[in-house]
Amino acid sequence: MDSTLRLIATNPLDQLARTIEALLIVASAPLSVAELAEAAEDDPERVETALGLLRERFGERRSGIVLEQVAGGYAFRASREASEACARLFERPIERGLSHAALETLAVVAYLGPCSRPEVARIRGVAADSAVASLVERGLISEAGRESGPGGAVRYRTTPLFERVFGLESLAALPRLDDLGADGEQIRERLLEVASARAS
């Protein structure tokens, strides 16, 4: 009982919020609630409440830095108001020169990963070696084991950095694949329509 009372007296929610704020400033990658709770030696529920306080404090148009929920955790970023100033001083090496082929490969890995280069090549119809190497170098995808069997191809999946660069809370934030593009039946119908138009 004594220790509980002492904890409340010396570590109120505001102090916990300040501790979390400090942890997020030092971190170079998003920190999960569990990681924050462990570092702050506090209860995860109280950490979430403190994060709520911080989100109010560090919101757009309230502060130069903004607390965001991204890549399965929480992180600070610059406010959008300051983006032009940031662009004058800093580079964006990860997404600079990201080719269309690399984006297609990234989409395949994000939706179907972990998957291998042959799988990517089968879907895109062209070799994916160069695109995969470029994405690995940028840190957007990483190796995730091998396919079963001897000599199985290396499989890849997206990294937390991918989610952060694209501003996704998690991969679940990607649009549903069924909602994208036409299905096989639509393509077939379209081809038949083209044929009918030409025949007439």
Binding site: S28, A75, F76, R77, A78, R80, A82, S83, E84, C86, A87, F90, R92, I94, E95, L98, H100, L103, E104, L106, A107, V108, A110, Y111, I123, R124, G125, L161, R164, V165, F166, G167, L174, P175, L177, L180, G181, A182, D183, G184, Q186, I187
Partner: peptide
């Protein structure tokens, strides 16, 4: 159809990336 979906997903990613250009964070 599968390839078309992936192409659309790539387009979505490209648009998303363009929309996030004013998000700056420490790496």
């Amino acid at each position: 159809g599968e390839y078309r979906r992936m192409k659309e997903a790539a387009v979505w990613l490209a648009e998303r990336l363009a929309g996030e250009r004013d998000r700056w964070f420490r790496l």
